[in-house]
Simulated assay, not measured.
Amino acid sequence: MPRYFFHTHIGDDVILDPDGRELDDADAAWEATRTLALQLLQGADADPDLIRAVLYVTDDSQDVVLEFPLSEALIADPPDRSGNGTLH
């Protein structure tokens, strides 16, 4: 099962995910990323700068497979994966 790493970029700051998470495939990584984005934005002490943050999801080879702006998680219906927040 592939492992995906969820790195948070807020401006010039980067919070690395050293452990990652095993998921079935890139589609499962997309769903996990959207859930993580919502959790970050809904946190009681959420930083207002988080709305401009981007989650970069990498695979075991450290190749970026997904760029997900946290603001995209607030869209009621997830966008078609052919635009932002799509798999690479």
Results as ranks from 00 to 15, higher is better:
I75P: 01
L50W: 04
L66Y: 04
G85E: 09
T33E: 02
D77Y: 10
D19G: 03
H7A: 08
P79V: 13
R34I: 03
R81S: 13
L41A: 07
W30K: 01
A37N: 06
V54Y: 00
A46Y: 03
T35N: 07
D45C: 07
P18A: 04
L87W: 14
D47S: 13
E31M: 06
I10W: 02
R34A: 13
S82L: 12
I51P: 01
A28E: 11
D47M: 04
D49C: 10
D63Q: 08
D59N: 15
G20M: 01
A44N: 06
D59T: 01
H7M: 07
S71G: 09
F6W: 03
H7V: 10
L38A: 09
G11Q: 10
F5T: 03
D24K: 09
H88C: 13
F68W: 15
L23G: 01
T35V: 13
V54F: 01
D12W: 05
F68G: 07
D19T: 11
L87Q: 12
T8G: 06
A46P: 01
Q62R: 09
V57E: 02
D24C: 01
H9P: 00
R81H: 14
L66N: 02
F5N: 04
L36E: 10
M1V: 14
Q39V: 08
L38Q: 15
A46I: 04
L70I: 05
L41T: 03
D77W: 05
R21S: 03
L36Q: 13
D25T: 00
F6V: 03
P69V: 04
F5D: 00
D77K: 14
A29S: 05
R52K: 09
I15L: 14
P69W: 05
A44W: 06
A32E: 12
R21K: 12
A28V: 03
P18V: 04
T35K: 09
D27R: 10
D13N: 08
S71I: 09
L66I: 15
Q62E: 12
S82V: 14
P69H: 05
L38K: 14
H88L: 13
V64G: 03
A28Y: 05
D45Y: 11
A76M: 07
Y4I: 07
D59P: 00
E22T: 12
S71E: 14
